[in-house]
Design a protein around this nucleic acid. Structure first.
Lengths: 242, 242
DNA sequence: TAGCCGCACTTACATATGTTTACGCTGCAG
DNA sequence: CTGCAGCGTAAACATATGTAAGTGCGGCTA
């Protein structure tokens, strides 16, 4: 029933062609769909889940709490993201995943994933690819965090989120719904909330973005990309044989 | 000929049992072994390699240069690491890989990797796992970078490198050879060279480590772990069915 | 054996970002 | 309709880390 709109399939088909059989295998892999409310954990650090969660709708964040209570978000997830596909092989969650908004989540049992790896090599590669893109995003965040100014880092993140939302049909021309608080942005960028506020105002003053309530509008894509030193290569948006 | 000592096999077998056939498939996957001198690129950003590089010996770093010429290292690689296995599916390198020391490198053609994914589902999962651990390390670095002090971050990195070297038989009790300059450490941690120096002295003064020339000695493992808020879960050192 | 180069290390100073505290919206709960 | 809670915003001040410039040592190389 999510056939026509399954955002994972939408996303994967951007990267390579999927056969009808592969799509069917993916659809059938879903054992149940549940709803998680905002601010609830989808998986917790230390869990050993028996299934992986595919985000059908909503926003989620992978996070870790360090000793002084501070939190770092290591990934932001949007519709179509397999938020803990890695738990299939990693077994133990080394971080938690939190629903930032109400989330619709499809569960795929690890046993089913194992069957897919046994029977559908190409589909397996596509799932592997999905986790590799996760890794590429992590690397990109690392370099932004380590070597860009706070403003550039923010610009970079905005460029990335805009493109990722566009791929799964969640962008209207230059506008996306981005229900993320400044505190959450701070935990993502490794900044304080106060500084996030400063930096957002800077980007607004520069005429690069508008960000009111949940609605983010890109006012000057080219300059925003330049400020954030953003190139989309790492998102692997090209369609190729894989 | 590298049969007995192949560090990749050593590493994978730490995580799950490999059949003789799988080991043979891995050994046979290697098309050639080459040597890359220190400070040379092993792969460059933008490359579309037709093979992936397995590091048999030496130290390498994945890095990216940003506009002002600053460099960020997003991964440090030791013997047994498949430094660009992800290029098999990602196709285009979004970063370069540099030899930090003389490196012995085995090449595995992507065509061979594809054959492995077609014929050896479990071995495929183990290779996938290897890239997932890469991702887990990235996440850990992100949280260390975003939310730990420079000293804690450094302690964390040292804990991680020590363990990773130990797994592939490169540690002697509490000592490892770590041929990395302070400038390189800075590019890894997102710090200036000067600050790396300050922080290393702090760790020395605290009696946590000794670091003379290339030789790193862990003087107080427990306290070092505590300072770096280090837990090894993310390295997936447990042997499990995968 | 002289000289150079890379690297660890210093010091003085500069600044990006963090901390604390507070204020005023807005929307929801009672 | 009232009051509270979450969120964005603000200003003053604190500090971790960066920058610039330079010293000295050890190991190559000529």
């Amino acid at each position: 029933m999510t056939r026509m709109t399954n955002p994972l399939i939408l996303k994967l088909e951007q990267r390579d062609h999927l056969s009808d059989e592969e799509k069917r295998a993916l659809e059938n892999a879903i054992s149940r769909v549940r709803v998680v409310e905002a601010d609830e954990d989808i998986v917790r650090e230390g869990d050993r889940p028996g299934e992986s969660s595919l985000l059908l709708d909503g926003f989620a964040a992978r996070y870790k709490i360090v000793s002084n209570g501070r939190r770092q978000i290591s990934a932001l997830h949007v519709a179509g993201d397999f938020i803990d596909l890695h738990s299939f092989l990693l077994k133990t969650m080394d971080h938690g995943v939190l629903a930032l908004t109400t989330c619709r989540i499809a569960s795929v049992p690890h046993a089913t994933l194992e069957k897919i790896t046994d029977e559908y090599p190409h589909l397996t590669r596509m799932l592997w690819l999905d986790t590799l893109i996760d890794g590429a995003i992590h690397r990109e965040w690392l370099t932004a965090m380590g070597r860009l100014s706070a403003a550039a880092h923010m610009a970079h993140l905005i460029c990335e989120l805009y493109l990722r939302l566009k791929v799964v049909g969640r962008a209207e021309s230059d506008t996306v719904q981005l229900p993320i608080t400044q505190a959450e942005l701070g935990d993502t960028l490794g900044l304080s909330t106060v500084h996030v506020n400063r930096v957002l105002q800077e980007l607004r003053k520069e005429g690069l973005i508008r960000f009111q309530g949940d609605v983010l509008t890109i006012l000057d894509w080219e300059r925003l990309k330049k400020v954030g030193e953003f190139t989309s290569t790492y998102l692997s948006l090209q369609n190729e044989d894989r």
